[in-house]
Amino acid sequence: MLKKIIHLWHILRQLTGDDAYDVYLKHHAEFHESTVDAPPVLSRKEFFKLWQDKKWKGIKRCC
């Protein structure tokens, strides 16, 4: 039961983008950490700005 609730909570966080920064950190650690010319890790605030601005380019809502 508790496991299910935690799973639902994860889905809710993913749906809203609440965990976008954690996903980014994970992606960064996985793909860029070991490379020499790795881009610097963004702060939560910097990342959120980029993420939000990018999200609203293009058609995101319709009728």
Binding site: D18, R44, F48, K49
Partner: peptide, 11 residues
């Protein structure tokens, strides 16, 4: 709130 006060805390 989500941009400055608590960045990224969407929920």
């Amino acid at each position: 709130y989500m941009r400055n006060f608590r960045p990224g805390r969407v929920l």
